[in-house]
Write a protein that binds this DNA or RNA. Structure first.
Length: 288
DNA sequence: GACGCGTGGTT
DNA sequence: TAACCAAGCGT
């Protein structure tokens, strides 16, 4: 099942792929690794400028490893999930000390680095080193759910059947190209909200479309509100630390969030997570 | 397996 | 306009 998907999707990709800098043939493994971490839960258009700045500033793992972790957090800007900046910094140091500055090439080695889970390890092994892995991101899972399983959305968490299906579809030749092509189809055509089936190269074979695009019937997908959460509070506090070069008096942090109990909890959380550092006299800064 | 973790554009 | 969504990970 589904082997008929390959040629249409690969042909579509050849015509419609975006020219993203981390896909160019001269992109280094480090450049690809940085892009993959930045792209976790983050749209391409927001990643592009930050990635470019990082590549200019820190073109190698050793360059980033030579900086204090707080500089990675500072130059993360407002990308979101700033622990990823800390993870990338820790990756850079591990790569420098344990791999002589060269990004490791195997899934198992990559998987052990901080912030690199199943998806990112498979993506880097595949896209940077040409290895054959099933790259199961949200786009690929959605495309396969629709085209093969006939359902609007994949399960909340990746299942064994999904993995088996993705592995069964891996082509003998050029698995990396296949992976990025399916991802791109999900990103540009087989989108979550309003899929453009009229532009889809596999519309004629898509189980979901042939079934009349039945609505999702799985469990309710909860979306938590952001306003007033610890998350928002942490973001406010970290923005103050990021934008101030050097020590920040606690009063400056108190000023950006009214609820003292929540504010203290969030600040403690940032310190616990290594995103902030307590200095003497109740001042704070990014980690050194 | 469910939850916490940022941010901003889109509908 | 509140909710959804965007190349997930760690606990």
């Amino acid at each position: 099942m589904g082997t008929g998907l390959h040629a249409p999707i690969l042909d579509w990709y050849a015509e419609n792929a975006r020219d993203l800098p981390w896909r160019r043939t001269d992109a280094s493994p480090w450049a690809i690794l940085v892009s993959e971490i930045m792209l976790q839960q983050t749209p391409v258009v927001r990643v592009l400028p930050i990635w470019a700045e990082w590549m200019e500033r820190w073109p190698t793992p050793a360059a980033l490893a030579a900086e204090p972790p707080g500089e990675a957090v500072r130059h993360w800007g407002r990308l979101g999930y700033p622990r990823r900046a800390l993870n990338l910094h820790a990756c850079a140091r591990a790569i420098t000390t344990e791999y002589e500055g060269q990004v490791p090439s195997t899934y198992d080695e990559l998987r052990k680095l901080p912030g690199i889970g199943d998806y990112t390890a498979a993506a880097v092994a595949s896209f940077a080193f040409g290895h054959s892995h099933a790259v199961l991101d949200t786009n690929v899972r959605r495309v396969l759910a629709r085209a093969v399983r006939g359902e609007e959305y994949p399960p909340k968490a990746t299942t064994t059947p999904e993995r088996k299906l993705a592995e069964s579809l891996l082509p003998a030749l050029d698995a990396p190209r296949w992976g990025v092509a399916v991802m791109e189809l999900g990103a540009l055509v087989c989108t979550a909200r309003a899929p453009r089936c009229a532009d889809c190269p596999v519309a004629a074979a898509c189980a979901w479309r042939l079934a009349g695009r039945p609505a999702y019937e799985g469990p309710e997908r909860r979306g938590q509100t952001y306003a007033g959460t610890d998350r928002q509070c942490r973001g406010r506090l970290l923005a103050v630390l990021r934008d101030a070069h050097g020590a920040v008096p606690k009063a400056a942090l108190d000023a950006v969030w009214a609820d003292a109990v929540q504010r203290e909890r969030a600040l403690d959380g940032l310190v616990t997570d290594g995103l902030a550092e307590v200095l003497a006299e109740g001042t704070y800064r990014l980690p050194s």
